[in-house]
């Protein structure tokens, strides 16, 4: 009985860590390989989750129609949600890339913060779009009802893990191709990449769009795991900051590092909950802030003392080159 509870706990931990790993992989394309500075991950998180929710739910009927308003509800199966989330996030990334990718890297950062804040405000204030601050609930899950509900999380962990693995393999493949080497060349020195005849803007755009599509998939996976989403979930803290800490901890420019960082930091994050549970009752309400303070300090320590992260970047860029 004890063991079963612990196992269920570990499974839920692994699901969330794997979902965050998907975000880290997306950010790794943008930041780790291309040097694009996206600090509005929460925006793509939010958009991906809502897009998938609207695609997979059906329009509320009867008495529910009075309580739940949404722009549309297609009632399509789960994979369509993932694809739709990726497409919409890719489109938004494309639009945000047009004014910012030719400028200094900080401009993209500021614009992505803007995107994240704007989406949160829109979903919060426009009730007709997706039920405003109350959000959407009862999102469908793949093969729901076929699986026994007490073991459902085991199945969902397998789903999330497969998606994460597929994303990992795809990026590994892409990054070892000539295309991937151009991204790294842009990151290291934009001017010499341009002098070698590479269209820097085009490659940056591809990297931004691809990374954001992966983030959209991550958002969709999250939505169908918690089955309930509302705008206040997608704050800069949970949606952006912690993902950056994960990637910096694991090692940017290393996909295995991205996954390792996600599991490690999510482990630490949940672990600090046990720590703050020891606090006196009066401090309980402020415990989450203490946990975030710890994560913030952790980021600064990583940046100062181990900027390459745990694993660091892999130097080998092609399978045709000699090892080492």
């Amino acid at each position: 009985m004890e063991l079963e509870g612990l196992l269920a706990y570990l499974v839920s931990l692994a699901i969330m860590a794997s979902i965050y790993a998907v975000f880290c992989l997306g950010l790794n394309i943008q930041w780790g390989y291309t040097g694009l500075f996206n600090i509005g991950i929460a925006g793509f998180f939010c958009l991906g989750a809502y897009t998938s929710a609207l695609i997979t739910t059906s329009m509320p009927r009867g008495v529910y129609a009075h309580y739940v308003r949404q722009l549309f509800g297609l009632g399509l199966p789960f994979p369509f949600g993932l694809i739709g989330a990726a497409l919409i996030c890719g489109l938004v990334a494309f639009l945000i890339g047009i004014p910012t990718l030719r400028l200094r890297e900080d401009y993209l950062a500021i614009a992505t913060i803007g995107i994240a804040e704007t989406f949160r405000l829109v979903f919060n204030n426009e009730g007709w779009l997706a039920n405003g601050p109350r959000g959407l609930m009862g999102l469908p899950q793949p093969l729901q009802g076929v699986m026994p509900s007490e073991y459902y999380n085991y199945f969902y962990l397998a789903v999330v893990f497969c998606v994460m693995w597929a994303v990992y393999l795809a990026i590994e493949r892409a990054i070892r191709s000539p295309w991937g080497r151009v991204l790294k060349a842009i990151r290291e020195d934009e001017i010499s990449a341009a002098m070698s005849g590479k269209d820097v803007f085009l490659f940056k755009m591809q990297s931004l769009v691809l990374g954001s599509m992966i983030m959209g998939i991550g958002g969709a996976l999250y939505a169908h795991y918690t089955r309930a989403i509302s705008p206040d979930v997608f704050t800069p803290l949970y949606g952006t900051f912690i993902i950056w800490v994960m990637l910096m901890a694991g090692g940017s420019g290393n996909n295995r590092g991205a996954i390792l960082g996600a599991f490690l930091i999510w482990g630490i994050w949940t672990g600090t909950k046990f720590l703050t549970d020891l606090l006196p009752y009066t401090m309980k309400a402020r415990a989450p802030y203490i946990r975030f303070l710890i994560v913030g300090i952790l980021l600064e320590l990583i940046l100062i003392y181990r900027p390459q992260g745990i694993l660091g970047e892999e130097k080998r860029v092609s399978r045709f080159l000699e090892e080492g």
């Binding site: 600090i39 913030g296 600064e300 940046l303 100062i304 900027p307």
Partner: peptide
């Protein structure tokens, strides 16, 4: 400069959490 900006993001959260 980008690493400094990330550290500033971290610092902003540290100040706000305090």
């Amino acid at each position: 400069a980008v690493i400094l900006a990330i550290s500033a993001l971290g610092a902003s959260f540290i100040v706000r959490m305090m």
